[in-house]
Nucleic acid binder design. Structure first.
Lengths: 262, 262
DNA sequence: ATATTTATGATTGAATATTTCATTATAGTG
DNA sequence: CACTATAATGAAATATTCAATCATAAATAT
């Protein structure tokens, strides 16, 4: 390889730096600044685009929306296969929210979509422990966003730990939408992660009405850590009619069932 | 004019809606969805670009980063100014950090640069109330990131309010780097925002050594809300030698002075 | 009714992007 | 140390997209 000034990685990082500072860069600027060919400049921009860090424009590159401090906010819609289902769940959830409400949202893809559905609302407050949800909603000044504190788990952008729980103690939430990994009559709602389970539990304690949101693949499944029994729920929102037995039990426990196809 | 479905304005608004929701749109999607020619589709995107509402890409348009629901994030703009000075301040600050330290960072451009300088460190803990700093550092698993809770102020990504202060009560910070808007002998350090001032005050209470970081344009200036007198500081880091009187006073008060040019 | 303005679609030359292939440096292997 | 394999780069050919221009038809004004 004919390295002139530095490695490919260095160059791309510098290009990204430039874009983050200036907002955009032209192909010619890349060529001149790094004394490389147009082909290389394009390849660098292409690589950065693939990494979600740059959006390519005609004759250059620019800073994409949804990029915070050079980092992509994950959970973008394309990635998800159950996007339609989750989107319809999110729409239904959002329809239950009224002006003046104080809403709680745990982390997760479905709750993230609920946040997006609430994005253009006025006069609501959203309490969440998910940084990406907070960022999404902060775009709208009419939505008050309260983020819990805590240790940042980089993989899913959730704040967890004792600090998160401590923060929640000071809050009172009307309606909380809880994203979960498993739902069954016997075990209630459950998640893969103990940290998340604990944080969710704590959030529930501070909430009047807890509504579990999940797609049909989660129904009848149990994840490792139980968050709450079905009796603790105000309602559930899902995309497929639950089985007869489940439906009966839920009715008996006065758990409201919202199905998107209804 | 041969209006098919609606006016030019309607169409452009719908295109914008689509882009805001989906993040981007292709030229072909515009053509198909609105049954117009490519020329018209391009013209619409061009108009939206001129209005600053869309960034045009190769073969389409996308949501621009500078625009968030019609408002701009001032954070990245500010970063341009005095970048070199701030970067050198950040480097000096980072050099004071050792393995095992628990570092506090308030929000601000300079502190953000400190975070970036600390990004590849090992075994340090960073406590911050700035979401963008947390996101930046969370890329590295060897840096433990603790975010305070609080109300998210969308303009600068800072978490403020009683909740932030409540979170800080549970934490003990070794060295804190505080970004400020004004510094003078009489008033000490000050900021534009009362919320930020209060949060900074609280963070100071939980910190052994507080170091104020600021570029020379902040020296000798007072902002609206005082955070602390100079006597409360362990040190300052700035890019220009302070005046003789100031230097004398700082020496007398045993405030360490770090200047990047030294 | 006629003229004017505006929006649109089509065409063409220019700019940009993509693909492919040859070259050279780096890293690894015996 | 030579040899190979790999990765990065540059150059050239091809394909795509864009910008500018002009003609036409609808809406508006006179």
């Amino acid at each position: 390889m004919r390295e002139r000034n530095g490695s490919k990685e260095e160059r791309q990082e510098q290009i990204l730096d430039y874009i983050l500072q200036h907002g955009s860069i032209s192909l010619q600027e890349v060529v001149l600044q790094f004394e490389c060919s147009e082909a290389t400049a394009r390849r660098d921009l292409e690589a950065l685009e693939k990494a979600g860090k740059v959006i390519r424009t005609m004759g250059g590159g620019a800073k994409p929306a949804g990029l915070v401090s050079g980092r992509e906010i994950p959970f973008h819609e394309k990635q998800n296969k159950l996007y339609r289902e989750k989107e319809s769940i999110a729409q239904l959830a959002a329809s239950l929210v009224e002006e003046g409400d104080v809403i709680g949202l745990t982390g997760g893809t479905t709750t993230y979509l609920i946040a997006r559905a609430l994005k253009n609302r006025r006069n609501i407050t959203v309490v969440t422990n998910a940084v990406n949800i907070a960022m999404e909603l902060s775009e709208n000044e009419d939505v008050q966003v309260v983020l819990t504190g805590g240790m940042l788990r980089s993989k899913n952008f959730e704040l967890c730990g004792p600090l998160a729980e401590r923060t929640l103690e000071a809050l009172n939430i009307h309606t909380m939408f809880m994203g979960i990994d498993g739902f069954s009559v016997e075990q209630g709602v459950s998640t893969y992660s103990e940290l998340e389970a604990n944080t969710a539990k704590m959030m529930m304690k501070r909430t009047e009405r807890t509504i579990a949101v999940f797609d049909h693949t989660k129904a009848g499944r149990n994840s490792l850590f139980q968050v709450a029994p079905v009796t603790a729920l105000y309602g559930i929102i899902t995309d497929e009619e639950p089985g007869e037995e489940l439906r009966e039990r839920l009715t008996k426990e006065q758990v409201k069932v919202f199905v998107t196809s209804d």
